[in-house]
Design a protein around this nucleic acid. Structure first.
Lengths: 148, 148
DNA sequence: AAAGATTGACCGTTCAATCTTG
DNA sequence: CAAGATTGAACGGTCAATCTTT
């Protein structure tokens, strides 16, 4: 048989596992979240990131890299969240090219409500994991994230 | 400050890391693959899974769960790969409801060609990881994958 | 009736072009 | 002329309905 085939490379297999695991969890937890909290997983991720940032706001560009979406995609995503009243846009004082997306009070409420469901789902998913294993997973994943 | 907020839950943070890391790698490696090998990452994943399965074939249903796509999504994905000549459809002898997708010879060639680029990219991504760390990551991810 | 695959309508994202500001 | 955000067109996926086979 041929050597050097894709199937034989352990890194290819590792990456395949990463994709399979993530897509599976996204679909399971996403459905759960949407069914019980009426909140798409993407919206949850946006609100979460805004809520834990400095003044509850992040530039469109920052969201773009953190979510790995194109700038166009972020524009429209924030459009929808804004229509729903969960975020608002704020101009930047020092650079008129940039726009901030900021979480609103209803946004924080929606996030907290959704978090209840989401955490329950996550507990089930990670039920078999010890605290030490979770720490290991965290540190490994941190090294794969986009540069600051 | 309020207790019990989403931002405070370590599992929520872990899941956030998982999404961020995976989406980032998908976009970086996906672009790389598409630029150099003209092969979308999704196509690569399909061909890879077919190539390492029994007779180079998998049912639409199996692909659906492995890729975490709906059955409709898989139908159209395989449509496109078939038009490109990289897979073919085969009826099932024993159950006329099921369809197999099978990798073709050009499909294997495309996979092997793309794998060169892909492996180089993966080596860079995982450059800082020791063999032991990679094994740990593998076993952790395995426990998050969809049930057989 | 249930399961597998496909189809039509729709939705969210990408891509490329554009506009504005630095 | 580069950088940030937005827009129009196209694409890839979902959802729900449908058809065939079990």
């Amino acid at each position: 048989m041929a050597r050097n085939r894709a199937i034989d490379d352990p890194l290819v297999a590792t990456f395949g596992r990463l994709l399979e695991a993530t897509h599976h969890l996204e679909s399971v937890l996403g459905r759960e979240l949407e069914d019980t909290a009426e909140l798409p997983l993407t919206w949850f991720e946006v609100l979460l990131r805004l809520s834990r940032s400095e003044r509850g706001e992040l530039t469109m560009g920052a969201l773009s890299t953190q979510l790995a979406l194109t700038s166009g995609g972020v524009t429209r995503l924030i459009d929808r969240l804004q229509v729903a009243g969960l975020v608002e846009r704020r101009p930047c004082e020092t650079d008129r090219r940039v726009q901030f997306a900021a979480i609103t009070t209803p946004g924080r409420a929606a996030l907290d409500a959704a978090a209840k469901t989401h955490r329950q789902g996550l507990r089930e998913v990670f039920a078999g994991f010890s605290p030490a294993e979770l720490r290991r997973l965290d540190t490994l994943l941190d090294r794969l994230r986009p540069p600051a």
